[in-house]
Design a binder for these strands. Structure first.
Lengths: 210, 210
DNA sequence: TATACAATAGCATGTTTTTGTTATTTGCTG
DNA sequence: CAGCAAATAACAAAAACATGCTATTGTATA
């Protein structure tokens, strides 16, 4: 695998993980440079400056209780030569479905070890998608037996409600019409057979959907 | 600081963090050796074998949704020359209080960076307790000013909302007037400085009040 | 290709929640 | 005992939510 012209970027609001993982990646001597970021602003500023250089982004799913996935599109928009590897501590139906929906080049659970990183870099280096064994197994068991009641989009929007956002606030966050949010919301409420957002959240929590 | 005779042990069920943090610690060349563990059994087996050697344990607070603190006593029992540094991704009243109660030699939030580790090792090397600035600040603000945000009655009623009940349904359940429920609800919302029930529930959940 | 369904969006109507304001009773504490 | 906070309760107006209905676009699949 040749990545000497590529810049590795580690994005995690837990600086301790970012710094540590950086040490691990640096030791591999596969990348031209390794940078760590804990805040979105610094990161996008860096992207704009270094737009032509190919980058390999290691992105933690959780950023201060918000999901980091919108950053993937932002990053791909700013730099066409972007490889995205999502790292998640949490493995549950919602998280996994959300992440898969963004089609990252790599998807790794934090319970994976060093060897998984090597394997992942090797596979994505060939231009293929890599999903770590832990997630693979999860998809095989959970997904087949328990068909998810909600779609990926619905689950994504459900996250905002779980964080306490209103319809209007969610519409702002997602750049969608509030009518659309209402539509998704009512669809979920119908599926769950409930008739308020608090009931829906209780329902979702009981099924570990959020 | 002299720790060349000490063995560093990293315990985290997230192997990716353990392996990464290990790379960081190894680079410091402060310890005789660095070992990582993700399971309790292997760890205690190792402890029994290496009982006389002084160890420095970096312990992640969360192990598969359970707290790892009982391991501290186990470790101290098996090896008198144990230095314990607890690392926590979560910083909330319950977690912080629990950890402090175990009197670890060091206590570091995962949002801290590399320099914090250096500072911590320096301080605990002198035999003093180190608590990282993030936790210090948390203790200073949250703990002193906010003893407990909600009354027992409010918390009781909050449970019904968490289960998805509406104002009217909660009034029925508690045999109270719905005006009373509204009053309790608004009191809590005022205390939490939010303005909807979903926000209140998110607030309460973040503080592990429900 | 026809069908189905997800995602998007809109409107109208009735219900629930939120908020401003006020008030009584009860129990604890200085 | 006086004062204060908690628990209880009420009314009205404004804001947000729920629901019945419709419609367009895109994607996937029988």
């Amino acid at each position: 695998m040749e990545r000497k012209n590529t810049i590795a970027i580690i994005f995690d609001d837990h600086s301790l993980f970012a710094d540590s993982f950086s040490a691990l990646i640096e030791r591999l001597e596969l990348f031209q440079a390794v940078h760590t970021f804990t805040h979105e602003k610094e990161f996008t500023r860096f992207l704009v400056k270094n737009s032509p250089a190919p980058i390999c982004l290691f992105l933690d799913y959780y950023l201060k209780d918000k999901n980091a996935l919108p950053l993937i599109n932002e990053c791909r928009r700013l730099n066409r030569h972007t490889t995205v590897i999502v790292i998640s501590a949490v493995v549950n139906p919602v998280t996994v479905t959300n992440i898969i929906a963004y089609r990252p080049d790599g998807f790794i659970s934090k319970v994976s070890g060093f060897s998984t990183i090597l394997e992942c870099l090797s596979v994505v280096g060939r231009g293929e998608q890599y999903i770590c064994p832990v997630i693979q197994e999860f998809l095989a068991t959970k997904n087949s037996t328990n068909p998810l009641p909600f779609t990926a989009r619905e689950l994504e929007i459900l996250q905002y409600f779980a964080q306490g956002l209103s319809i209007a606030q969610t519409a702002d966050q997602t750049h969608l019409s509030k009518h659309t949010i209402v539509a998704h919301r009512r669809k979920m409420m119908a599926k769950a057979n409930v008739n308020s957002i608090t009931e829906l959240l209780a329902y979702a929590r009981n099924r570990e959907l959020i």
